[in-house]
Amino acid sequence: MAEVLVLVDHVDGEVKKVTFELLTAARRIGEPAAVVVGAPGTAAKVRESLAGYGATKVYVAESDDAVGYLVTPKVDALAAIVAQASPAAVLVSSTVDGKEVSGRLAARLGTGLLVDAVDIDAEGTVTQSIFGGGVIVKSKATKGIPVVSVRPGSVEPEQAEGAATEQAVELPATDPAKSAKITAREPLVGGDRPALTEASVVVSGGRGVGSAESFDVVEKLADSLGAAVGASRAAVDSGYYPHQFQVGQTGVTVSPQLYIALGISGAIQHRAGMQTSKTIVAVNKDAEAPIFEIADFGVVGDLFQVAPQLTEEVAKRKG
């Protein structure tokens, strides 16, 4: 069976959930082989968790340049492995970095690029949700090895035993005339909350929250559920919450098990980023708000009454 390469998303020696989702999806097509690109010593920290999701092999591409330059070291590593392993497909996460890595890789290899898949089958045919979730498309690569970015949260991760045999990959030195140097990183300050694309529950606030201070109500409910906090574009534009947390067409696209929208009207801009969520709960004062058209459970009411009560109920049940 041919290998399916999975680019590993990791931070501080921890593998992100989306990688387990990709390894699960890769098993449908062939033998999942994880690709770790990072600072020296990274693979040793992540190998075991990759084995737990069925990685038969772990390609190790480690160097100082690997973390010193943007995007290109990952493309270099994947291109080198593709040349020697002739995989059936390459899967990366459909994140800001992942979309760029997959695009460059496909261009370099001269193969078909499939963007932001929400599902993938054994033949490598993908399902995509386009135009803000209004249209469902099935497509496939017609030339070469398909390079696919997969939307975080769209595949249910399943554990499996894998040998995770390490194999070193020689990374070429990065040419600074062709790559941007990373001079500093400032990780997102989200406290102990999960990242938006990783969370299985997301609680978002909109214009109805009314102020930056009042976002407290959203955060408290999120914390009771172990959820990530999101915000609509209207809330971000009003300065209630930082832009990095914006959910929507021009922000982050999320696909959690549960999405709770507080004081969000549900304009297409917002729906585009959340309507593939499995379950949607909405609270809004305006009974006419379009968010109710897509909500599985809607409450017409004041979020400042409903959300704290829900927070309390959740806390009670957790006891």
Partner: peptide, 9 residues
């Protein structure tokens, strides 16, 4: 999603 990365080229 990761936060801010400072780049130079």
């Amino acid at each position: 999603e990761e936060g801010i990365t400072r780049l130079e080229a």
